[in-house]
Design a protein around this nucleic acid. Sequence first.
RNA 1: GGCCCGUUGGUCAAGUGGUCAAGACGGCGGCCUCUCACGCCGCAAACAGGGGUUCGACUCCCCUACGGGUCACCA
Length: 495
Amino acid sequence: MDMSWFESMEAKIPTDGVRTRFAPSPTGYMHVGNLRTALYTWLIAKKSAGKMILRIEDTDQERFIEGATEIIYQTLKACGLSWDEGPDVGGPVGPYIQTDRREIYGQYAALLLEKGGAYRCFCTKDDLGAAHEATDGKSISKYDGRCSRLSPEEIEEKLAAGLPFVIRQAIPRSGSTTIQDAIFGEITVENEELDDNVLMKSDGLPTYNFANVIDDHLMGITHVVRGTEYLSSAPKYNLLYQAFGWKVPTYIHCSPVMRDAQNKMSKRHGDPSYEDLIAAGFLSEAIVNYVALLGWSPGGEQEFFTLEELAAVFDLKGISKSPAIFDPDKLKYFNSVYIKALSPEAFYTLAEPYLKSGIQNPAIEYTLIAPLVQSRLDTLPDILPLVDFFDALPAYSNELYLHKKMKTNEENSLEALQALLPVLEGLEDWSFEGIHGALVALAESLELKNGRIMWPLRVAVSGKAATPGGAVELCQILGREETLRRIQQGIAQLS
RNA sequence: GGCCCGUUGGUCAAGUGGUCAAGACGGCGGCCUCUCACGCCGCAAACAGGGGUUCGACUCCCCUACGGGUCACCA
């Protein structure tokens, strides 16, 4: 066999520093768990001034989804997770899309066949039923390796007959294999527990089991971050590395993100993907910050981090072994903190579309409302129910005028409204200061506490028990005409 | 079921043989305030169970229970 091809491949492998990789399948959306994997991958690279590689694992033709790769790019960019090499930006060890690498897998499969680390399997689907030996008298089975015992002549014959075949990994029949994981430590399994997995499918494309090893090696990956669903296959990957004589990368297997104690987060169960969360009004920064803390702890008491801060403090030791349940409440809290931290201008930009859709009345100044709602939101759409009364006074019960602490009731509220109406009617300066000054002066002249005036006014003008902003702000925003109209309606309703 | 892994308050979690077992979310209570919210203060709430080892176990070992992962020509 001509080895020059391999030698040139091997010669290209970068050997300088840390190289991590995020290798998603193009499914059309980003799981929260995927996002966390991408984040950790990025953080590890960033922390050690290494490189992050983006590789698209699209070897499952049946699951191919148009445009899915774009979503991966967009999501990563929106989260600030930049990559140094990938399908779009290229790099020294491309291509970075697995279906563009089929030649490579074929060559390496041939090499492995030659080394005795793999064998052709001609079993059909029907054969497989019989070829799976029951390991425990139950329906659990393992391929019995019958095709590994085919003689060279038999193989030639089947090949000549044009029979389709797959290539399976030849697992040693005895001994044990030990893997080293950065967070789970050393794990040893008996080789007889391992199945002779399919490495190359009959369509000529590799399975994940083969492609990940070839690609990680050829791309010079030093740290492999992935979910624990690959933990039990890792020994087989080690055997593959061993068969090729390659160095095994550092494994970092992360436990899944759960929706509850027994189920992983999943689209199927209606759990939100990253895209869903954005659509629901969550901020990218808040999601990333929260997700970073799902299954990882910085150790100290700080829990709000920028990406750069995360990169500085990130440490594999903080990754926990057990699954973490995604808590929507805590995400909301993180989001509310991020919203509150926004500059008034930045917040207004985000809030404007919601204010516009919630308030049709063109006379209303959105810019006056935004500061009133900024501290009261978990997510952006929460603005809507907060501001609907600006558009039209809702029908309300007179019971709203009754407030124990303010010492108001329907009677004295009516009196208050009747007293303040002429004051506002004659008011020149319809500013916050002007309105506030006039009302406070009125309360003082009547020897009443401010609340006796303010509460009835707020109710009359909003029809609500709770509003963003106080009575004065509401009057200011509604404008003189609408304010007076609503007060008159309140008086009528109480009379 | 076999194999692998895990188990600190409802949730995220700190903890690495000697602590009154952090902190955060959520819950509850209070303060502030022209409402509500924000903010601030406080309260309740946990080492799955049983055996060892040890002067001493959340920390080490074993068993049980519970949970997760895996057992595809999916990744």
